[in-house]
């Protein structure tokens, strides 16, 4: 069976809340297709890996589908992980002590307990230390984005924007064609839509 060619493949990593990503694409005049079919994903010009919930559950969902993990590794087109989807691109997560996809080096860790640091980190926070990358085109100075997460990815050479919440962590990461944002662009107003548009223009 040959898969129909699609515009944007949205990888089904389980969990609810994928609708908001689809609707955000629709608002940009584009259409995402939810799929776990490696053939279909391979042929899509853009791939989005969303994710809500726990890292181990999401990895289990991806592993269940034959060939899906290998497919993700072999992708050459732009891939954008969102929230947990970004974290899945890393090597390992403390959340459920699980191996991740390993497309980007680093370990995902829980926010350390500190005075008055409420966890999850939930709400609008601004980006710091923006690097040069097409994903960051046309953003105003230090725009705010909507974050909801209890685990964070470390700052590394692949970080193109950071965020500060007790500790610095990676808000946007890019290594070759693999990119990710910890915040929810689909829920971050105009700035979030700009990030998605920048991604789709890659």
């Amino acid at each position: 069976m040959s898969a129909a060619k699609i515009d944007i493949a949205v990888i089904d990593s389980g969990g609810a809340n994928i609708a908001s990503v689809m609707f955000a694409l629709n608002r940009l005049g584009r259409k995402g297709v939810l799929t776990s079919d490696p053939d279909q994903i391979e042929k899509a010009p853009h791939v989005i890996l969303p994710g809500v919930g726990a890292a181990a559950d999401a990895m289990n969902t991806l592993r269940k589908r034959d060939g899906l993990i290998d497919c993700i590794h072999s992708l050459k087109q732009p891939v954008l992980g969102i929230c947990l989807g970004m974290q899945l691109l890393y090597d390992y997560s403390e959340e459920g002590n699980t191996d991740l996809l390993g497309a980007i080096n680093g370990e995902v860790k829980h926010f350390q307990k500190q005075y008055d640091l409420t966890v999850p980190h939930m709400g609008w926070n601004k980006l710091i230390g923006l690097g040069k990358h097409a994903l960051l085109n046309n953003l105003d100075n230090a725009p705010y984005f909507y974050f909801v997460h209890s685990y964070k990815a470390p700052i590394s050479k692949h970080t193109i924007a950071g965020c500060e919440y007790g500790q610095n962590f990676t808000a946007i990461v890019a290594r070759n064609n693999f990119m990710g944002c910890q915040f929810h662009p689909e829920r971050s107003g105009k700035a979030g839509a700009q990030i998605l548009e920048n991604f789709l223009n890659l």
């Binding site: 005075y115 008055d116 640091l117 709400g123 609008w124 601004k126 710091i128 919440y165 007790g166």
Partner: peptide, 13 residues
């Protein structure tokens, strides 16, 4: 007194 942590998280309305 404990120091507040460095933080740019905004208060939500």
């Amino acid at each position: 007194m404990k120091e507040p942590f460095p933080n740019n998280l905004t208060k939500r309305i």
